[in-house]
């Protein structure tokens, strides 16, 4: 059935199109230029990223290195759960973290029902949207982004890009090395809904809390300035 349907659909589409050659189409598309992107709230990309994460109702931490990241994770877990347990994907960057330094007890794999905290290592942070990018795979099971109550994401400051187009350039470079990933996830906030009388509620299906830890060289006043820009 779908072979004949396919033929019919394509016949109708061809009849309505102009039948231009591939080169002409490519040239015309290129001539359309690029789309404008959103203005950043700050000139410094780290500050802009942090401010936009906060505007998206995420929470943020800035740490200098991996030891700082583990300590920030331990603090977060203790503050919310009086525990040091979390689930992390099988990412070599996460495996190499000095977990013992802060007594954090990670389990590597996919989050199971009832496990409240998942940690992801982001391929990128995108300043324009205040969001992060993960690629599905063993290193970052999709369930970890979606099934936990708290989703924590570790982003290296060197992996910040300005906008979504720059993010896609990186994703394409990654795909050229390892093949196309099954899923590319841009995440910019906790799961939310306003389907009941337009009232915003977090934790519709996925995480109720979304926490981003920015690791590496970040200007000293970036976090403070980001809070001021976001008004929270």
């Amino acid at each position: 059935m779908t072979d004949s349907s396919r033929s019919r659909v394509f016949a109708n589409v061809r009849q309505a199109c102009r039948g231009a050659g591939e080169d002409t189409i490519a040239q015309e598309l290129e001539a359309l230029g690029t789309a404008p992107t959103a203005d950043l709230p700050a000139a410094d990309i780290h500050t802009a990223f942090l401010a936009n994460v906060l505007k998206n109702q995420g929470s943020v931490d800035c740490v200098a290195n991996r030891s700082g990241a583990v300590k920030a994770l331990a603090d977060y877990l203790y503050r919310h759960f009086r525990s040091h347990r979390l689930v992390a994907g099988n990412d070599p960057h996460l495996a190499a973290m000095p977990w013992r330094e802060a007594g954090v007890l990670p389990r590597f794999g996919s989050v199971e029902p009832g496990e409240p905290v998942a940690l992801s290592y982001a391929l990128l942070g995108v300043a324009e949207i205040g969001g992060i990018v993960t690629l599905t795979g063993k290193a970052n099971p999709a369930a970890n982004n979606l099934l936990s109550e708290h989703h924590i994401v570790l982003v290296e400051s060197t992996r910040l890009v300005r906008d979504m187009e720059a993010a896609w350039e990186c994703i394409e470079r990654e795909s050229a090395k390892t093949g196309r990933s099954r899923g590319v996830n841009f995440i910019a906030g906790p799961s939310s809904t306003a389907d009941i009388e337009g009232k915003l509620v977090y934790g519709a299906h996925g995480p109720r809390n979304w926490h981003v830890i920015l690791m590496g060289d970040v200007p000293a006043n970036a976090l403070e300035e980001a809070h001021a820009l976001a008004g929270r």
Binding site: N52, R182, F186, S191, S192
Partner: peptide, 30 residues
């Protein structure tokens, strides 16, 4: 400025993946 989840899906689970669908279909309607 951005929705919470913007996802791009290319197909079924890859060999090294730990989750995701085993089979994926596109049904394109005219």
């Amino acid at each position: 400025p951005q929705t919470c989840y913007t996802s791009f899906y290319s197909g079924p689970r890859r060999e090294q993946d730990s989750d995701g669908p085993l089979e994926t279909h596109f049904v394109l309607l005219d």
